[in-house]
């Protein structure tokens, strides 16, 4: 297991760590320099970092677009395990970067406790990156997975006004950014996590069929 993780990290290459470091540093610097008018934490950790996690899962943790995918699908004892481990490695590293960003930003300014930051970050990041993992498995072309989750991410950002319809506040991905009522957001995060788990159910079935 440890060897597989090491090998995955080698496959990702140094650019993953450099890009993560630059992005995290930029967020920390912005947390110190942006004014009080901006809801910095939801913007950074509910909107920006989850999309970074999706890019990490779709671009560095690519599955179907990997040039060795056919060989792995044919010879691996379990395709699902391979997909899951690659995803988890990419997601864990990007989440580590997000965690460092949260810690750094908390030193610079205080808007909410660290546990709350983790709770607002994890469900959308898990959902978007799982969507990327599923798209990567379904579309063999490079960058299409990021394109799909990127367009969905932008559409969700643009359709904040749809929250006027009752019930949508329970599934809207960026609920704290959209300033929904306080009693809803924890339910929302739970439902988004469930949606992410459902995507993993689809990935599992797809892997079973491919393998």
């Amino acid at each position: 297991m440890k060897e597989r993780i090491k090998s995955e990290v080698k496959i990702f290459g140094i650019n993953f760590f450099l890009v993560s470091a630059v992005f995290t540093t930029a967020v920390i610097v912005l947390s110190a320099t942006t004014g009080e008018l901006l809801d910095f934490y939801p913007v950074s950790f509910e909107v920006a970092f989850p999309f970074f996690a999706a890019i990490a899962a779709g671009e560095w943790g690519k599955t179907g677009a990997d040039s060795n995918f056919d060989i792995i699908a044919a010879q691996s004892s379990s395709l699902f395990k391979w997909v899951l481990l690659r995803y988890l490695t990419a997601f864990a590293i990007s989440s580590l970067a997000a965690g460092l960003g949260m810690a750094g930003a908390s030193v610079m300014r205080y808007e909410m406790p660290l546990w709350e930051l983790i709770v607002i970050y994890l469900p959308p990041a898990f959902f978007l990156s799982s969507l990327c993992a599923l798209s990567g498995l379904l579309c063999r072309q490079e960058h299409i997975a990021s394109l799909i989750s990127g367009v969905i991410w932008l559409v969700i950002l643009l359709t904040r006004s749809l929250l006027r319809f009752p019930g949508l506040e329970y599934i809207y991905l960026f609920i704290r950014f959209a300033k929904a009522p306080d009693n809803v957001w924890l339910w929302n995060k739970g439902l988004v996590t469930l949606a992410g788990l459902f995507l993993w159910g689809v990935i599992y079935r797809k892997c079973k069929r491919m393998g």
Partner: peptide, 12 residues
């Protein structure tokens, strides 16, 4: 990938 991140920030 770095370009994607930069572009996503601007578009977002």
């Amino acid at each position: 990938r770095f370009f994607y991140v930069l572009a996503a920030i601007l578009f977002g």
